[in-house]
Simulated scan of single mutants.
Amino acid sequence: MPERLARRLWFGVGPGIGVADASEIVRTVEYADRAGLDFFTVSDHPYFGDRLEAYSSLALLLGRTRNITGVATVTNTPTRPVPLLARSLATLSVLSGGRVVYGVGAGGYWDDIVRFGVDRLGSAAAVRAMEEAIGLVRALHGGGAPVTLDGEFTRVDALDPAAVPAPLVWTGSVGPKSLAVTGRTADGWIPGNAADWRSERYRTSRPLVDEAAREAGRDPADIATVFNLPGRVTDAPLPSTRDATGRWLGGSTGQWTEELTEAVLEHGASGFVYFASGDPSGRIGIERWAEEIVPAVREAVAKG
């Protein structure tokens, strides 16, 4: 099982999830594994027919790699029976040697979720369902006595936990109630809408996570912040790495290195996901990410 994410730097790649891109997705994750990246991500939107199903993708990609960790960012809780999800996670963990993280969300696309045949939940109920799911997934790992739960959203009767350590939990929390769940229960948080360390979303949301963690008797430093970073890796420096709204655009390898090092040392960032599918430079972009930017950031951070 990977050590606690908040206590190390992790660098990942988002290879895409489109059915039409399947072969390139496999090649990208295999390359990321060889290049020493720490994790890859797949999104979970099973109601879209042009996208690969997340957990099937995780299984295949973990089977094609040796060291890299996989995570669905984030699992669409309303569309998956939680006890079966727990078994899927335990199975992936056993088969991969612990290389899986449980990414979880409350469900943000309710019109589409309803089309999938799921009853609509209000926002408060969806957050309660997410917290209940996190607790049950953890309870169904680690061995021990059978688990019975007469929950608000799931019932199980005397289910044996898998004799496998529970995975790390990352959330994609957005609203105050779900951010509080992150503070109480999670190991990591992925700010929504690719918000980064300079964004208003991050500045207003992370304190809610920290407050809930302290109220639960936890150290907020144990909850990692993992930033999604769509952006270009360019040959020459850009005049500005951000647009007029402050949103990250990318830049040269030097500009990426400077910004990410600042994010770690001054803003407490613990992880970054480079979205290879969003960079028109394609393979060149991911190679610069894995072979130039990531080693440079690690070195700069080590020097402090």
Rank of each mutant, 00 (worst) to 15 (best):
53 E>H: 10
157 D>L: 00
242 R>K: 13
121 L>W: 01
4 R>I: 02
88 S>D: 15
107 G>F: 01
9 L>I: 06
127 V>K: 02
197 W>G: 04
188 G>V: 01
299 E>D: 14
121 L>T: 02
41 T>W: 13
72 A>I: 01
8 R>D: 11
114 V>T: 13
301 V>H: 04
187 D>Q: 10
175 G>C: 13
186 A>F: 06
111 D>Y: 04
201 R>F: 14
261 T>K: 11
209 V>H: 02
171 T>K: 05
128 R>F: 03
145 A>C: 03
71 V>D: 01
23 S>W: 05
22 A>F: 09
197 W>I: 13
8 R>N: 10
239 P>W: 02
220 P>E: 05
17 I>T: 14
222 D>F: 09
7 R>L: 09
41 T>P: 00
251 G>Q: 05
13 V>K: 15
285 G>R: 03
242 R>A: 11
140 L>Y: 06
153 F>R: 00
43 S>L: 05
137 V>L: 03
41 T>L: 07
151 G>Q: 01
136 L>Y: 03
243 D>M: 11
151 G>C: 08
71 V>Y: 02
199 S>T: 14
264 V>G: 07
301 V>S: 02
15 P>R: 11
58 L>Q: 12
118 V>H: 02
251 G>H: 06
40 F>K: 07
53 E>T: 09
280 P>K: 06
286 I>E: 05
137 V>I: 10
266 E>V: 08
176 P>L: 09
125 A>K: 09
293 I>N: 04
79 T>M: 02
164 V>M: 14
264 V>H: 08
278 G>I: 03
134 I>P: 00
131 E>W: 00
141 H>G: 05
123 S>Q: 10
225 T>D: 09
205 S>H: 12
176 P>Q: 14
162 A>M: 15
225 T>Q: 10
175 G>M: 11
55 Y>H: 14
90 A>N: 05
41 T>H: 01
97 G>K: 13
82 V>C: 03
217 G>F: 07
170 W>Y: 14
110 W>E: 10
183 G>M: 07
129 A>G: 05
168 L>V: 07
267 H>W: 07
133 A>T: 07
259 E>G: 01
190 I>E: 01
159 L>V: 15
169 V>T: 05
71 V>Q: 05
234 T>F: 08
245 T>Q: 12
301 V>T: 05
222 D>E: 15
166 A>P: 11
123 S>R: 14
269 A>D: 08
177 K>Y: 07
151 G>N: 07
60 L>R: 04
251 G>M: 07
